[in-house]
């Protein structure tokens, strides 16, 4: 199976091309630059280098968020439009799950996180379950301190991963002490090859209805709903 994986859901931009059991091309940057300008040239270059034509793809895989609203929409729009127009399969994978893969041999729990402002986190918890590395607590938007007390109760080592970790490290250590393990600088970028690998194993989903997983309503919508309840 030939597959193209696209991740623009956070600052990291990642493209991978998979062929059968191999990752044959991978491009990744972690820069504060415009995904809309850079991602299509990157897709073009990686596919050209890997000598894979769009029509030869069997499947397109997108990191579906959570993350930057605008960022994730860019990758999702490209992935779903390509999948639809080329009549290929489409798979969306949680952006947190992709980061979590960097700790899949850790042994304990893995907690990927993205900062969500106002001391909130986009996060989830991953670990071995039924012999498989998978989500053990689903992705969520949560107040950091609530999340940390939840993790504390596990009484197990937790590996924290993610490029926003520095903003929260101190508080995590205060709360969890030695229970907390922190990834190093090479462990934080979501790898597009892992995105592709997961995507190849999953069931495809309906293309037209595929949308990012924002994990929260647009602010105006949330305010409107709150006003309706009053």
């Amino acid at each position: 199976m030939k597959a193209l994986a696209i991740d623009t859901s956070n600052l990291v931009m990642g493209i991978a091309v998979l062929d059968g059991e191999k990752v044959i091309g991978e491009y990744i940057t972690n820069l504060k630059k415009n995904h809309s300008v850079r991602v299509m040239p990157a897709i073009h270059d990686v596919m050209k280098e890997a000598n894979v034509k769009p029509a030869e793809l069997d499947r397109i895989i997108a990191a579906k968020g959570p993350g930057s609203y605008t960022g994730v929409r860019i990758g999702v729009t490209i992935a779903k439009t390509m999948a639809w127009t080329l009549k290929k399969e489409l798979v969306g994978v949680s952006s947190l799950e992709v980061v979590a893969q960097n700790g899949k041999y850790f042994g304990g729990y893995v907690c990927p996180l993205f900062d969500a402002r106002r001391t909130q986190l986009y996060t989830g918890l991953y670990g071995k379950k039924d012999g498989q590395f998978q989500a053990v607590k689903e992705d969520r938007l949560v107040l950091r301190d609530n999340w940390l007390s939840e993790l504390k109760k596990l009484d197990q080592p937790v590996l924290f991963l993610g490029n926003d970790l520095d903003m929260h490290k101190e508080r995590i250590f205060e709360e969890l002490g030695d229970q907390a393990v922190f990834g190093g600088i090479a462990d934080h970028n979501p790898r597009p090859s892992e995105l592709g690998r997961i995507g190849v194993e999953r069931e495809p989903e309906p293309v037209h209805h595929f949308v990012p997983s924002y994990l929260q309503l647009a602010e105006a919508e949330a305010n409107w709903l709150a006003a309706q309840k009053k």
Binding site: M40, I43, H44, I74, T81, T85
Partner: peptide, 15 residues
């Protein structure tokens, strides 16, 4: 950005 990226995907997919 949605229109622009959809257009790029269409143009790229079909050359």
């Amino acid at each position: 950005l949605i229109g622009v990226n959809a257009a790029k995907a269409l143009a790229f997919a079909h050359g």
